[in-house]
Structures are given as structure tokens and as C-alpha cells.
């Protein structure tokens, strides 16, 4: 396996969906190619950083306003609904 081929299989490897036979080749290449090993590590860390990053909190006043708007629209759509709070 060459570095270019490894690059093309990167998603499948990182996501764990790579074919087992290819996986062996992939890891054999990384064992002998430090740059590819580091790129794979960097990619994993990049994904982790975004996934575990601080979420954006929705402003509470906006939430209330939006729910009001939605309730109004709901009542137009289901005029008979008595359970509308």
C-alpha cells in the first residue's frame, strides 16, 4: 500500500468500516510510515475535538418566543384542538 492509497481509505479506516484484509495492509503501512500514522492520529483528534466541543446554547428568550409562534401556528392548523395549552 502506498501513502496515496492509504489516504483514499482514510474515512473507512477511521470509521471502522474498512474491509479486514485492507485493514491489515493499512496498519502494516502505518507501522513503517510515521507521517501516515501521525496524520491518522491527527484526523481522529480533529473529529474528537469537534464532537466533544462546547455546544452552543440556544438563548432562552428566543426559545420562548419560538414556542409561542409555533403554538399560534398550531392553533391555526388544528383550530379544534382543546389540548392546546
Amino acid at each position: 500500500m502506498k501513502c496515496e492509497e492509504l489516504l483514499a481509505m482514510l474515512n473507512e479506516y477511521v470509521d471502522g468500516t474498512v474491509d479486514p484484509a485492507v485493514c491489515v495492509e493499512f496498519e502494516k503501512h502505518m507501522a513503517g510510515c510515521n507521517p501516515c500514522q501521525v496524520v491518522v492520529d491527527n484526523i481522529r483528534q480533529t473529529i474528537t475535538l469537534y464532537k466533544d466541543g462546547q455546544p452552543y446554547a440556544m438563548p432562552i428568550q428566543f426559545r420562548e418566543k419560538m414556542h409561542d409562534t409555533l403554538r399560534k401556528k398550531w392553533k391555526e392548523k388544528f383550530p379544534g384542538s382543546e389540548n392546546a395549552l
Partner: peptide, 18 residues
């Protein structure tokens, strides 16, 4: 026509959408 169910769905996904 259950508004509560719709609001529950909204509450479940609004943060992700935002």
C-alpha cells in the same frame, strides 16, 4: 393534533438545530 407531542419533538431537537 396533539400539540404537546409536537412541542416535545421540538424540545428534543431545537438545540441540535440551533
Amino acid at each position: 393534533g396533539e400539540l404537546d407531542a409536537f412541542e416535545a419533538l421540538t424540545s428534543r431537537y431545537e438545540q441540535r438545530v440551533f
